Amino acid sequence: MLSDIAGLAAFDRVFDAWFVHGLVTEVVTPPPDDVDGQVTSSGENGAISTMEERPGGGVEASAAATTGGRTFGRSDARQRDLMRSLLVAWPASLPVIPSRRRRPARSGRTLDMRRVWRQARRDGGELTRLRWRTRPPRARRLLLLLDVSGSLKRHTPDLLRLAYTARQAAPARTEVFTFGTQLTRITGALSGAGVDPALAAVSRAVTDADGGTAIGEALRRFLANPRYLALARGALIVVISDGLERGDPTDMVRATDRLSRLGHRLVWWSPLACSPTYRPVTRGMAGLLPHLDHLGGVQDLATGLSEVERIPAVVAGPRRAAWRLFTREREHDRHRRRASPPVAPGRPAVAER
């Protein structure tokens, strides 16, 4: 119910006044040099209770920063089965581009003149057989930007396992970053053998998990680094976040616009979009939508597998189609509400046969 931990004292007074029938107790304020971040308050019987400040309760975006690692648990049998399916789905879904190096081929448009002249010398100077070269396809670079703030704390372990499968399926073409209040590159941590040791390495590397949210600042730091900027150029960029930005979302919208122009496709996966009633009408998501090629819902490995299999259709479609799709769905809902007859109060609706 609170947007800031500073309002906890006032909340305790109101709570006691309402639920303890007017028995308002005195709230003890911690000293300024308290390093544990704990607030003590007296309860109904006068006993002292301790509440630890935990920024990022998994309900809404927070501005508080955390320092320290978080363990992500061990993977169970169902998660490992889904991860095996993802290891197959990633290579089949990633977009491809012709490689720069040419290889010998049975047919093509470019003659391999060196091999043609070699064969001609063997045949007495006659051009009896043609040799060809072609540019074989290779997968585009995949860039994953994963939100690990407190509003996604329930989904973070599975989202990291999803990123681990992408790294293992295309190790040479996949880059993974996490962001909360900081920006952390975890590509190396996810390169280890075994998902649980890899998540343990991520836990040691990421120190802002379950903390506050600064999406615009994190994306701005990414774009300000020339080495990171090169990773986004021509890549399939996937941002996994709920888009709950604190304060003014202008920086987040501008950074998303630039990412969309740099990458081949920009896909945004949000756990909130898994709900059929979700509509991106907040200031942040409404500003992002015109720059996105697809807005999907991912909250665990099962929904992640569905969205990975949908990538080829997104790549084959037009650019920045998320806004048009949302507008079309909104118009459809409006027409459906207009067409449905109003139900008289007190009378149940009769289903059509």
Rank of each mutant, 00 (worst) to 15 (best):
W90K: 10
W90E: 02
P91Q: 02
A92E: 12
S93V: 02
V96M: 11
I97T: 14
P98E: 01
S99A: 15
R103M: 09
A105N: 01
R106E: 15
S107D: 08
S107N: 10
G108F: 08
D112L: 10
M113I: 13
R114K: 12
R114F: 12
R115T: 13
Q119C: 04
Q119R: 14
A120K: 08
R121L: 15
D123F: 07
D123C: 12
G124Y: 09
E126H: 14
T128R: 14
R129Q: 14
R131F: 15
R131W: 14
W132T: 00
R133I: 05
R133C: 01
R135C: 00
P136N: 02
R138T: 10
R140L: 04
R140V: 11
R140T: 03
R141D: 07
R141L: 08
L142P: 06
L143P: 02
L143S: 03
L143D: 00
L144G: 00
L146T: 10
V148C: 07
S151I: 05
L152D: 00
L152W: 01
R154I: 04
H155T: 04
L160W: 09
L162T: 01
Y164R: 05
Q168A: 14
A169D: 00
A170H: 15
A170V: 10
P171H: 05
A172C: 02
R173T: 09
T174P: 11
E175W: 13
E175N: 09
V176T: 07
T178I: 09
F179E: 01
L183E: 07
L183M: 11
T187R: 00
A189L: 05
A189S: 13
A189P: 03
G192E: 14
A193S: 13
V195Q: 05
A200D: 14
A201V: 06
R204W: 06
T207L: 10
D208T: 06
D208S: 09
D210Y: 14
D210T: 06
G211T: 08
T213V: 05
T213P: 06
A214M: 05
A214Q: 13
I215P: 01
E217C: 05
A218M: 08
L219N: 04
L223S: 02
A224I: 12
P226G: 01
R227N: 08
Y228G: 08
A230M: 11
A230V: 13
L231R: 14
A232S: 15
R233L: 05
G234V: 09
G234D: 14
A235G: 08
A235C: 09
L236R: 03
L236E: 12
